[in-house]
Design a protein around this nucleic acid. Structure first.
Lengths: 147, 147
DNA sequence: ACCTGGTTACTTGACAACATGAAACATCCA
DNA sequence: TGGATGTTTCATGTTGTCAAGTAACCAGGT
């Protein structure tokens, strides 16, 4: 997996990595702030956002969050205690519990998305063409093929 | 602070935001994995990295981490218990304690940096010119002026 | 010079959220 | 029936907040 680079490290690459660090910091800052504006923690907001797309078994949430399933139990517990999420039985498998947003949860998730300024603010300084360029570069950096 | 956009949202901007989400996820994945390869948590690795550049009063660490100073006490406690960091008095102000990496801490910090593949791996697919372009776009996106 | 009061730096304590791992339980499936 | 899977519970550790406490700095004013 890890490329043992014998090549001298490109100073521009280092700058890019530094900038990505800044992007990550900024992303979290804004995300957590948006979450706490709705009295949610980052993890809770993340799960709520996931479930607002489609109901999902606990197991799958854990995979998305890259954490243990036992952890998800607690997070969903807290969301459920606040009426944002509910557990439903899965008709096709009585072992699994589907976590699904309630109506209130759906509203909250929408508000959360809207209050996430990261989508608009930092990109405002770029032209449409530059955004497209940025998109393509990020795609290739992430190794996603553009078929 | 937040731009109340009346304008319809640029679909390309949404794609970029999605990609940035991917970048953030990937960044964390690699960072935490590198940290746990050395039996460190993410926060511990972060502080160790900070201190490997220069010793720093607790207060400043807290500001960099954007958390309460009381939290830093615990993190430095754990790093100190493992001999990676030590507290020194500040000669110019007896209230402050300077956290500084030990020799072992410095070694660990270097190993940590080296094993952080994010610097090389994902940028490998880009040419030098493209990296420079990406750097400039990220800079402008983050609102840093290039004087 | 000597308090005195306000500020700053750090720690401690209580508590909540997150995270892991092991063990328990019900359910599925070959 | 026996092994695998999905969820929860429990014990434990780390990270985070906030309030309170201690020590030290730094103004004044007398």
């Amino acid at each position: 997996m890890s490329t043992r680079s014998a090549e001298p490290i490109d100073p521009v690459a280092l700058e890019v990595v530094e900038l990505i660090g800044d992007v990550v910091a900024r992303y979290h800052e804004e995300y957590d702030e948006a979450a706490s504006r709705h009295s949610l923690t980052g993890a809770q907001a993340r799960v709520l956002g996931l479930l607002s797309l489609e109901p999902m078994p606990m197991r799958r949430i854990a995979r998305r969050l890259k954490c243990e399933p036992s952890n998800v139990t607690g997070i969903v517990d807290r969301l459920e205690a606040r009426g944002l999420v509910e557990r439903r039985p899965d008709p096709s498998d009585r072992r699994v519990k589907l976590a699904a947003v309630t109506d209130r949860g759906k509203d909250t998730a929408r508000l959360l998305r809207d209050s996430l300024d990261f989508a608009r603010e930092p990109l405002a300084g770029l032209t449409v063409a530059e955004r497209a360029l940025l998109r393509d570069l990020l795609r290739r950096m992430l190794g996603e093929e553009t078929p």
